[in-house]
Amino acid sequence: MLGLLASILDGVLIGAVYGLAAMGITLIWGVMDVVNLTHGAMIVAGMFGTYLFVSAVGVPVYATLPAVLVGGFLAGVALYWIAVHRVIGQPPLMSLLSTFAVNLVLVGVGTAVWGTDLFNVPASLPGFSLGRYTFPGTHIMAAVLTAAIAAALYLFLYRTRTGKAVRAVSGNREAAELVGIPTARVLALSFGLGTTLACVAGMLIATMFPFTVLSGDAYQLKSFVVTVLGGLGNPTGALVAGIALGLLEGVTTPFVPVSWTLVIEFVLFVVVLIALPGGLMQLWQRR
């Protein structure tokens, strides 16, 4: 019983990170109606960025956070201008294919450089013991950092001028343009932020689990499941849904072989899309 409880609590800690990754997808979707298929690749970029930094400079893992934040943002802005800007306002098929293409390039280069070997980032923090069970310190730290970043994002979106511009564009791009908000720059900024979230999520996942160049696909799929559960375009929903998914994984881990988790999550994804297109939060608002 205690084992299950611990497994659930641990699931919640990991789920927070899924939520963080999904916030990136949902932010980009909300602002520009683009389904960003570079997300998985950028999660992996966060993982390998952290790995390279730690092994080259020898700093502790968490000291790479500022570099990951800045690097992720710059990469996202660059991605926007390269792959997304030209297809804004075109059928969704186009941005889907263009980000998919970039994903191919990034994964292809990654595979050529690092192969498909497993990598680890050395991270050790004192854990927290509950009876026979110990929560790894890295999992707790990941959840804490997620909470901090989510709070920072909230403050940015609701308390700063630029953040308000982002929300204005998200609500209605044409109207925002009419009142003089430079939409292209806001879109680039949002894409940068979304990518930053992917990279940080990648970094946090790297402190918890081993990874390969190809890990991105699975985490990207999870992010989409979470995004849809939370309601596309709803960052708070994404965080809540991430925790819900982690919880679900925690509950099922003792009973279901790991290789089935993705299948279950995918079924969940389709069922939610069909039955509850507004996401779990929709249930809330109906009451």
């Binding site: 389904v35 098929l93 799929l221 299948v263 899309l273 069909i274």
Partner: peptide
């Protein structure tokens, strides 16, 4: 009949899922 109730990008995402799902199923 299931996933085509999804429109546009949702459908595309679901096809990625079909792929992962079928592969996991066959592997097991």
């Amino acid at each position: 009949l299931g996933i085509l109730r999804l429109r546009g990008v949702y459908f595309a995402l679901a096809t990625i899922g079909v792929n992962e799902g079928v592969m996991a199923f066959v592997t097991n």
